[in-house]
Computed example of a mutant assay.
Amino acid sequence: MIWFLIAALASLVALVLVLPVMRGVRGDVSDGRAVFDGQLAELARDRELGFIDEDAARQAELDIRRRMSQAGTGDAAALAPPAPASKWLRHGLVGGAGVSVILAVIIYMLIGSPFLVGMTPARAPELPPEAQAVMAELENLRNELAERPDNPQGWAVLGQAYLRMGRYGDAATAFETAINWEPGSAFLFAALGQARLFETGGIMSAAAREAFARALDIDPLDVRARFFMAEAVYQDGDREAALASWQAILDSAAPDAAYRGMVEARIAAALADGEAAALSGDEIEP
């Protein structure tokens, strides 16, 4: 089985690591005299070639031999090879390596997946033709925007597609790029706020609130910005003001407006939350 092979390989690696300890291998320690011999030989060549005069050569030779003598009379203990590791230390290292190998095999057998070795990875399900066509269009749009980024409508379309796909961070980036080219669009600021809101799981962040506020500064009647700013008021704890804002959206909406159902559902959910809080004692009227 695969774990037996893993155990054999781990044991081999551990053996290679502890083998020098078992053998007590030590490195040689040099006293540095070979360096002085090389300096003397080099000095002799320079003297023969005339690169240095006799007085300077004799002075250099005396200096080299003086340092050689000092090195030879140094502390012998410093030049002595280190003592080999104790028997108990070597045995402890070897035992520790063996225990590590055993533990590695046990842990792999407990949490590993040896049965996956040799299996063919499962193929990801293919997208339906409609989804493939949409992905191809998005890829073409991304390529076009990479070549011509001064296209706010293209960035808005890309942002809306990312929003529907749940890629909220990418959607926010696309809307911000569109706003750079068209900073006076309430639609783009409201879409940016929605992407930022969904990015935080429905919690009204400062970035989302600012985007909705900018949208309302440009167009106070923007329905999406009004709806989500009422949500911000609701999350701030002012349920009555939020309900009034949502009701105002309904009062000004056409009978066949597509967003009526969403606003009505939000009002119903807020009323249900208020009733549940009142029953639990969180809200008690004086």
Results as ranks from 00 to 15, higher is better:
Gly193Met: 08
Gly193Val: 03
Gln194Trp: 11
Gln194Ala: 14
Ala195Asp: 07
Arg196His: 15
Arg196Gly: 12
Arg196Lys: 15
Leu197Arg: 02
Leu197His: 12
Phe198Trp: 02
Phe198His: 08
Phe198Val: 10
Glu199His: 14
Glu199Arg: 15
Thr200Pro: 06
Thr200Gln: 14
Thr200Arg: 15
Gly201Leu: 11
Gly201Glu: 07
Gly201Ile: 09
Gly201Cys: 13
Gly201Val: 05
Gly202Leu: 10
Gly202Gln: 04
Ile203Lys: 07
Met204Phe: 06
Met204Ser: 12
Met204Ala: 13
Met204Asn: 04
Ser205Lys: 07
Ser205Cys: 11
Ala206Asp: 15
Ala206Val: 15
Ala207Gly: 12
Ala207Trp: 02
Ala207Cys: 01
Ala207Asn: 14
Ala208Gln: 09
Ala208Leu: 13
Ala208Trp: 06
Arg209His: 11
Arg209Glu: 08
Arg209Tyr: 13
Arg209Cys: 03
Arg209Ile: 04
Glu210Tyr: 03
Glu210Phe: 06
Ala211Asp: 01
Ala211Val: 00
Phe212Met: 05
Phe212Thr: 00
Ala213Lys: 09
Ala213Val: 10
Arg214Thr: 01
Ala215Ile: 01
Ala215Gly: 01
Ala215Lys: 00
Ala215Glu: 01
Leu216Gly: 10
Leu216Ser: 11
Leu216Val: 11
Leu216Cys: 12
Leu216Ile: 12
Asp217Ser: 08
Ile218Ser: 05
Asp219Arg: 02
Asp219Tyr: 03
Asp219Phe: 02
Asp219Trp: 02
Pro220Asp: 02
Pro220Arg: 05
Leu221Asn: 09
Leu221Gln: 15
Leu221Lys: 12
Leu221Asp: 06
Asp222Met: 01
Val223Phe: 04
Val223Ala: 04
Val223Met: 12
Val223Gly: 12
Arg224Lys: 08
Arg224Met: 13
Arg224Cys: 09
